[in-house]
Design a binder for these strands. Structure first.
Lengths: 229, 229
DNA sequence: CCCGATTTTTACGGTTTCTTGATACGGGTA
DNA sequence: TACCCGTATCAAGAAACCGTAAAAATCGGG
């Protein structure tokens, strides 16, 4: 191997889209591998060891959600889901199963590359493993369970703190309502969607400069939220 | 012993991970010892006297939490727990039992080393730690087990003294009720939360200028307390 | 065995946090 | 434009949590 390009696996049955995605990725210096079935995709993932997977949910030979589950059994590499317009529930299922982001067809090359870059950034960041995180004018000391804003201690309630740390642990990633409810309130509160709304609003009031124009806790309508640094 | 490298004990049953961790540590100048069972780990800890232990929670021959408890019976050396993805409750149990930090598999070498360095930094500080601490108008002489306020001797009961020193040892950090109960009353009193309340109130009466507006022993509702100098 | 010191219980009022429901907002669509 | 859906916001009531005093039990030294 002469160079050390980041490797991306494309799992997609339509050859047009496959080619489009490959071209976009290669133009930015990524190495692209292709698979046209889920089965083949899992094999390629195991042998090529890509740093990122782009997965079409509408493949004929099985459920994309199962693909993600199998992949997640042995690796945490980011998965970006490509979904057809309107296949909302599939998308959410995929995110719940461990996908990291999604793109709705049709999408442009610029949009695609931006998402890909975000995932690579996130993964590099997650490995650096400091217990100090900061964004905007907020600093979090995870080891001490301490949050401050502009140097002043910022008091968060237990739920607010759990929400924030869960979000911060995976920036740039779409987090579903379901994931938030299970992680913060426990699996028995999957129907209490309004809890999330209320507490998210309270959290925003404390950490965003302008809570009505949030810059870090973004809402993904119909799906959940996304945290960006 | 020709050199004086810091010693780290790895307690882990999977040989791949063991080797990975050892390589990472040795590349940074640590001396690494290995054990593949908890039993063996305890023996090695006793003979090698490491400055740090890396412990996999999922060992076949027993509960990692018990390992930590046994270790804590005779030493306070830092323990970093290696836990499998999603074993949230194990993680908490381990921290309560006295672990100092945790890493979620899979983790990278950079992340691992950052955590290890953090522990050595912290421990070095704690060891060199003056045996004289002071805050507000209180001075504590840890070596002589003596406390005074405004120059006057201040009498603390055994429990109050243990509470205070435990808090003072980790300023700024939130300390959970569980931690206080295990450290001060022992692990069999995890349900006696009211003990903490009563004795904390008594302690505040003795060390705070205005016990109703505490400036050093702050309460974190729903979590525990936080000591600030 | 007695006494003072300490710890454990108990009880209750005050505070913080969470839940709940009502209401307003805002982007998309017919 | 008017409507619909999901979202944000607010404030109340409920629940959980905390501080405190004081009584009861326990401990330890003489």
């Amino acid at each position: 191997m002469s160079e050390n390009k980041p490797r991306v696996l494309i799992v997609e049955d339509e050859s047009d889209i496959r080619r489009f995605v490959r071209m976009a990725l290669e133009s930015e210096g990524y190495e692209a591998y292709e698979a046209d079935t889920l089965k083949r995709g899992l094999i390629e993932a195991g042998t090529r060891r890509p740093e990122l997977v782009m997965l079409d949910l509408g493949l004929p030979d099985g459920d994309g959600v199962d693909f993600i589950r199998e992949l997640r059994a042995w690796t945490g590499i980011p998965v970006i889901v490509l979904s057809a317009r309107g296949a909302e529930s599939d998308k959410i299922g995929a995110l719940d199963a461990g996908a990291d982001d999604y793109l709705v067809k049709p999408f442009g090359a610029g949009e695609l590359l931006a998402r890909v870059r975000a995932q690579f950034r996130r993964h590099a960041y997650a490995d650096s493993g400091e217990s100090l995180v900061s964004f905007g004018d907020v600093r979090i000391d995870l080891a001490r369970r301490l949050v401050e804003r502009n140097g002043q201690p910022l008091h968060l309630t237990p739920i607010e703190y759990r929400l924030l740390t869960f979000l911060v642990a995976q920036p740039d990633r779409v987090i579903t309502h379901r994931q938030l409810l299970t992680k913060v309130w426990g699996p028995s509160h999957l129907e209490d969607l309004h809890y999330v709304r209320v507490h998210m609003a309270n959290l925003r009031k404390k950490i965003e400069r302008d809570p009505s124009m949030p810059k870090h806790v973004l809402t993904e309508s119909g799906i959940g939220y996304r945290f960006v640094l």
